[in-house]
Amino acid sequence: MKDDSLGSLAWQFALLSLMAYGGANAVMPEIHRQAVDVHSWTTERQFTDFFALSQAAPGPNVLIVTLLGWQAAGLPGALVATLAMCGPSSLLAFGAARLWERFREARWRRVVQLGVVPVTVGLIGASAFVLARLADTSVALTGITLGTAALAHWTKIHPLWAIGAAAVAGALGWV
């Protein structure tokens, strides 16, 4: 039974790895379908909690996969799921990075770069906008967002201080 779930964890997440354009959030609906409907690794409620936990923890949000693996098959499951979700896309990134370096001076590479960078910049702006809209449900929370942005932009203060201060302010009920 356990071997079976390790095998299906590896297979499912390795497949999803190569479909995850734009990161784990892009394939979240499919991850949900696999975890809840197809394999019953978690209940609906657990899945929602895992999603929140993976957002709250430091690190990439791909960590939801770690939690699903853990739920399905313990620590080996967590390891297998995480490596399967990151492995295939990482191998692709490795190959692409080597190719990118080799053609550093080529014109086509410069053209691709000139074309792709503005789109990436726009997408980062979009992420910031969407995250701020989701997070800033009150005036105080909006203030925290703008204050942190200003601090990170104009000072050399370690940004972790802003995160820590926000955590304390939240716990004390100031927001």
């Binding site: 929370l141 925290i144 942190t148 927001v175």
Partner: peptide
């Protein structure tokens, strides 16, 4: 509440 505030600060980092 603490998580909400951290999320707001993290959005600020993304803005910067």
């Amino acid at each position: 509440r603490s998580c909400d505030a951290v999320a707001a600060a993290a959005a600020g980092l993304f803005l910067s």
